[in-house]
Design a protein around this nucleic acid. Structure first.
Length: 585
RNA sequence: GGCCCCGUAGCUCAGUUGGAUAGAGCAGUGGACUUCUAAUCCACAGGUCGCAGGUUCGAAUCCUGCCGGGGUCGCCA
């Protein structure tokens, strides 16, 4: 149950009643919001209805608020109603309502917080899509986690989610990769290859590829010209790189359902890319024309020439975009159009792409393209993740990709483990830069939000261990907790915790709606804080402790609250893909 | 130069899609360990929300123009 939605419904019927009395029909209540007030002293729930609807109803905000308040005051679950400020309606809910809601939370168990908002709509989340030219490094890490948590979040919100990886295995870089692997092949056959020439991939990770090629083909590739060995070597190399990337992703518990090869778009006659260009041509969205040279610094090899352009300006882009390179082959943009065409054909109407910030200049044209090919019917959202700055003790860690000594994802996971990486990568808005400090992230203290939240979960477990030990006769089953006399939970700390827990479903929906996974992490941090705070109140006021030997009824009610806290913490951590440990010694 | 992102406490950042007196953590100061794990908690202090206009009952949030930082700009993917 979602208490905010529950009361929003009650408010709307109150408004409709008042509108009817004034002879007005069809009031638009879409902008009416019921939310927790920023200041808890204002009550349990705050509503803006009077301010939003004053005009259409021809009333002053405060007068309307007073009339709505009078209707709501009759509600048996409402304790008190106040009109405040410019026309806020502040509700205080009877404590029995909270206890009822808590009971249903416990009954819902792990399904608490799951929403049907998505009504099973098919969503495609494309993320990582790192080039298959080497192991994953830190630069890929953030997009990987953000995409994965996004997918989890959309599942929780009731969408039918497919996780997808686009393999860029068609460009010239893959040929360069294959040449580098071919060199390693010669090396594996005993040849002294000397230093890796400039322009090829120097990494040791290609050695096993060379060895595999040698095992499979012996020396027959040596006698072939490049056109002949290239396709063979390319396939083996890309397959092995992708296997390696899959292993890297598995270290972060990331598993994609679909790996989509760019190369398959260029195969066949006509290829999917050519078909897409043909379709755009038939729709009159393509022409031969000239682009103005870029302002600022002109590329050395700039030449003014006619080329095949897509009319992206008709769909909100700043300039029209080329579909063919000077040699006539399709641009990356052209294959990307074909790729997204394919996603739409597979039945997806919601597409979420997670890209690195360096692709920011690419967003508008892709949005334009999808508007064009879907006739405006598809929801397409690009989430750009900003750069991660890697620090160690506050000092930037130097990385040089050229020399190949960048820090791999594998090294990072070995050093700090998957949980801190996953948590920290979503403990920030995706469009803000992020500092990732080795020392802070491995630290096991409250400075580290990962441990802070995990510790709260471990504490909930420790309470139950303790209770089982101290009160061996007490039935601690879920059923017993559900039947507990929850009305005895009346301390301010307990009530604050209950209110926070019941915000969970609303937070999930809002985060999914906004496609902002970081909200889950922040919510958990706040919930953990609420729990730690209440725990500590039991030190000064022993009568507030969860376990009370003299009173098994209140103990059981409090354990029910602890259980509910554990449920929400582990549910939220599951969305983040972070483990919820039972103890942290 | 065009486009995109960012600018909130000394530092790192949230801010519930336009709500009330702008919030956390770190750093600083002062407190709480014969305890259900002090890996925690409490209190104090800290702000012209980059600047200037505009929109309205109401702006950190939306619009315009500046300033500063980052990214990006046909034949890389």
């Amino acid at each position: 149950m979602n208490i905010f939605r529950d009361f929003a419904e009650r408010l709307k019927s109150a408004v409709e009643l008042i509108a009817e009395q004034s002879g007005i029909r069809d009031v638009d209540t879409a902008r009416v919001v019921v939310e927790p007030p920023r200041d808890p002293s204002h009550g349990d729930l705050a509503c803006n209805a009077a301010m939003v609807l004053a005009k259409p109803l021809g009333l002053k905000p405060r007068d309307l608020a007073t009339r709505i308040a009078a209707v709501l005051a009759e509600d048996p679950d409402v304790d008190s109603v106040e009109v405040a400020g410019p026309g806020f309606i502040n509700l205080r809910v009877r404590s029995g309502y909270w206890h009822k809601a808590l009971k249903s939370l416990i009954g819902a168990g792990e399904t608490f917080g799951r929403s049907t908002m998505g009504v099973g709509d098919a969503v495609n989340v494309e993320y990582v899509s790192a080039n298959p030219t080497g192991p994953m490094h830190i630069g890929h890490c953030r997009g990987a986690v953000v995409g994965d948590v996004m997918a989890n979040l959309m599942v929780a919100a009731g969408f039918d989610v497919t996780r997808e990886y686009y393999i860029n295995d068609a460009g010239s870089q893959v040929d360069v990769l294959a040449r580098s692997a071919y060199l390693r092949y010669r090396e594996a056959l005993g040849e002294d290859i000397g230093a890796i020439p400039e322009g090829l991939y120097p990494g040791d990770y290609l050695r096993p590829v060379g060895e595999a090629l040698a095992r499979e083909h012996g020396d027959i590739l040596l006698a072939m010209p490049e056109e002949e060995w290239m396709p063979v070597v390319r396939v083996t190399t890309v397959d092995m790189m992708m296997a390696m990337i899959r292993e890297d992703l598995a270290l972060l518990n990331i598993v994609h359902e679909i790996f989509f090869s760019e190369r398959t778009l260029t195969a066949g006659d006509p290829s999917a890319v050519e078909a897409a260009i043909d379709q755009l041509t038939r729709d009159g969205l393509v022409y031969e024309g000239r682009l103005p040279p870029p302002k600022g610094q002109l590329p050395d090899d700039w030449e003014d020439r006619e080329q095949l352009l897509f009319r992206s300006t008709e769909f909100g882009d700043d300039v029209d975009r080329p579909l063919r390179k000077s040699d006539g082959s399709p641009t990356y943009f052209a294959s990307d159009i074909a790729y997204h065409y394919d996603k739409l054909r597979r039945g997806f109407r919601h597409l979420i792409d997670v890209w690195g910030a360096d692709h920011g200049g690419y967003v508008k044209r892709m949005q334009a393209a999808i508007r064009a090919i879907s006739g405006g019917a598809a929801h397409f959202e690009v989430k750009l993740v900003q750069i991660v700055r890697l620090l160690s003790g506050g000092e930037p860690v130097k990385m040089s990709k050229r020399s190949g000594d960048f820090i791999t994802l594998r090294e990072l996971v070995d050093r700090v483990g998957p949980d801190p990486i996953r948590f920290m990568m979503v403990f920030r808005k995706n469009d803000a830069q992020l500092d990732f400090d080795f020392e802070k992230v491995t630290e096991q203290s409250k400075d580290n939000p990962v441990f802070y939240v995990q510790y709260a979960h471990a504490r909930t477990c420790s309470v139950f261990r303790q209770a089982a030990e101290e009160l061996p006769g007490l039935d601690l089953s879920i059923g017993a907790l559900e039947r507990a006399r929850l009305e005895s939970l009346d301390d301010v700390g307990e009530m604050a915790l209950i209110r926070r827990l019941l915000e969970y479903p609303r937070m999930i929906e809002a985060a999914a709606e906004a496609q902002e996974p970081h909200r889950v992490a922040y919510f958990l941090h706040e919930l953990a804080s609420e729990f730690h705070a209440h725990w500590n109140r039991g030190k000064e006021l022993p009568q507030l402790r969860f376990i009370n030997h003299a009173d098994s009824h209140s103990t059981l009610a409090r354990l029910a609250l602890v259980h509910a806290t554990k449920l929400v913490l582990s549910s939220g951590l599951a969305i983040l893909g972070v483990s919820a440990p039972e103890e942290m010694r």
